[in-house]
Every structure is written in structure tokens, then in C-alpha cells.
Simulated scan of single mutants.
Amino acid sequence: MSSALCVRRLFHAVEEYQGVDAFLAVVDPWLDEHADAVREALSPLAVFGGWTRATYEFGDPLELLYALSRVSDALIYKFQPQLPPGSETPWAHDIHEPERWPHVTRAQYLAAFSRLGMTPIGEAMFEPFFHEVVHVTQHQRPQAPVEITGTVWPGLMFGQMLFNRTGVTVRAGAQHLVAGIADRSPLHEVFMRRYRETLDGSLGWGHNSQWKTDFRRDYLTDTAFHFNVDQEPDPDQDLLGQPKRLTAAEQSDLVRHRCLTRPLQDPHASHRTSQIGRLTIPRT
């Protein structure tokens, strides 16, 4: 059995579990049997430039990693706040009934992924490479920088590659993040969140085809943040693959944050797509 199929079966086992301790009953036994093989299959992805897709094979490292990210999303789901009152139920919620997903502790979550070679993201000032905005408290000064006020779930790295961003609450001036947009607009290239709509390549596909979705790879090197390294830029289109309508700053924010952060200058510009462009930003 391929590693990708093993991870896919783990996701369904977590999805269907109705007991009191999913970690001990489902996750831990699975790790005993499969952790070594999955970690070995993922190992080429740990270093920037260490793996590229020469020819397509079903269940290759990008699809394996996507399946594993779904397991992660299921295990951190209950850490998150619910949809705000009056919100439209996201399509993915209707399909998967995630409120049935089990709760695990922070320690159990970190223990599970440490066995797969992941390491926690440490304490750091706000940086969209590392941090996903769950809630914005608007600072009275528009120019006030983004300040982390709390952690909702832990983030993980796999070597130089980002696996899952840390969920955070923040306080920020409206020049940087606008409450109701930065924490409520659709989140791109993420399978599911409890508190907002998400958009990824699996939505709308069938039972098997949805698992052909690639994991988005972001890397941290000594010199730069590398976002979405598998997406090739098109000089005739914007970073979303659409005719150029977003400003350069809006495109950059969308790639880095995976969502809108402020009102668009052109309210008719399209941003709803499951593929966002490639971007490299030097570290300073």
C-alpha cells in the first residue's frame, strides 16, 4: 500500500471516529505502523530545491503531503472558533460534517507530527510565512504594526519547508490588516477551517480525484522566503492566473497571507481561485 493511501485512510479513520480519545485509538497505532515509511517518503521535500516533479505518479510526495495536511486540519479543527453568526456555511463543511471530528490536545498533535519529522514553529514576531490570522482586533491607529495577542494552534516546519502555519490572534492597524477581511475572507490553498471559508484544488472533485491535489510548498532559507514554489509565473497574468487587475501589493499580500487583508482598490477584481502564484521575498 502506498504512503499516500495510508495517510488517506488515516484521514477517513479520524473523520469516522466517534470515541473519546482519537489519538490513542486511531492516530498513535497508525503512527506505529506507518510513521517511518511516511517520513522517508517525505524526506526529499525538507530542503529547498531538493525535489521536483519530473513525471507525474499518483500519490507522489506532493499528493502525500496534501493528504497529511488534511489530517492536520482535522486534528486542529476543534482548536478554532466557530463561524460567526449569520455566516454562510462553507461548501467543505457540508461535505465533511467536521463538527463530528474529534478533539485532540496540543501535546498530542505535536507528538503525532514530531514522529513524522516535523518541528514546532517557535515564538516569533508576526510574519505571514509563519502565521495565519484567526482574529483581528483593530488598532485605533491605522499605521500600528501587527502584534500577536494569542496562539490558537501550533505551527510546524519540515526542515526548510512550511507544513502548517501557527494560528494566531492579532491587533493591527488598518493599513496592515482590516478586521472582517484579513480574518474572514476565503483562505486559499487550505483544505478546511472551522471559522472561515477555504478554497483548495480538491473542492468539486470526486471521491478519488480530490486526492490528486498538490500541497502548496513554501520554504524558508537563509536568504529568502519562497512562496508557492511549484507554481510557474505567467508574465501575461497576475499572480492568481487572472488578467492583471490586482495591484502588485494586493497580489503580494494574497500570496503571503493566502487571503485578502484589506479592501481591493478594484472591487470587481477576482481573487477566488485555488491557485496562487509564486513569490520570493528576501529576508532582512
Score class of each variant (00 low, 15 high):
155 G>S: 10
155 G>V: 08
156 L>S: 01
156 L>K: 06
156 L>G: 07
157 M>E: 06
159 G>F: 00
159 G>S: 08
160 Q>G: 01
161 M>L: 12
162 L>T: 10
163 F>K: 10
163 F>R: 06
164 N>P: 03
164 N>Q: 13
166 T>P: 02
167 G>Q: 04
167 G>S: 01
168 V>S: 14
169 T>Y: 07
170 V>D: 03
171 R>T: 14
172 A>P: 09
173 G>S: 13
173 G>V: 04
174 A>Q: 12
176 H>C: 08
176 H>R: 14
178 V>N: 03
179 A>P: 13
180 G>W: 05
181 I>L: 11
181 I>Q: 06
183 D>A: 08
183 D>G: 03
184 R>P: 05
185 S>Q: 09
186 P>F: 07
186 P>W: 13
186 P>V: 13
187 L>A: 05
187 L>P: 10
189 E>C: 03
190 V>F: 12
191 F>Y: 14
192 M>V: 12
193 R>D: 09
195 Y>E: 08
196 R>M: 13
196 R>K: 13
196 R>D: 02
199 L>D: 07
200 D>Y: 05
202 S>F: 01
203 L>D: 05
203 L>N: 02
203 L>I: 15
204 G>L: 14
205 W>Y: 11
205 W>M: 04
206 G>T: 11
206 G>R: 03
207 H>F: 07
208 N>S: 03
209 S>L: 09
209 S>V: 04
210 Q>V: 13
211 W>Q: 08
211 W>F: 12
212 K>H: 09
212 K>E: 03
212 K>A: 03
213 T>A: 05
214 D>S: 05
214 D>A: 09
215 F>I: 04
215 F>V: 11
215 F>P: 01
216 R>S: 10
217 R>P: 02
219 Y>F: 14
219 Y>S: 10
220 L>I: 10
221 T>F: 00
223 T>F: 01
223 T>Q: 14
224 A>H: 10
224 A>K: 10
226 H>C: 15
228 N>H: 14
228 N>A: 00
229 V>T: 12
230 D>V: 00
231 Q>I: 11
231 Q>F: 00
232 E>C: 07
233 P>D: 07
234 D>E: 12
235 P>D: 09
236 D>L: 07
236 D>I: 00
237 Q>M: 13
238 D>A: 07
238 D>Y: 10
239 L>R: 08
240 L>R: 02
241 G>I: 03
242 Q>P: 04
242 Q>D: 14
243 P>N: 00
245 R>P: 01
247 T>P: 05
247 T>S: 15
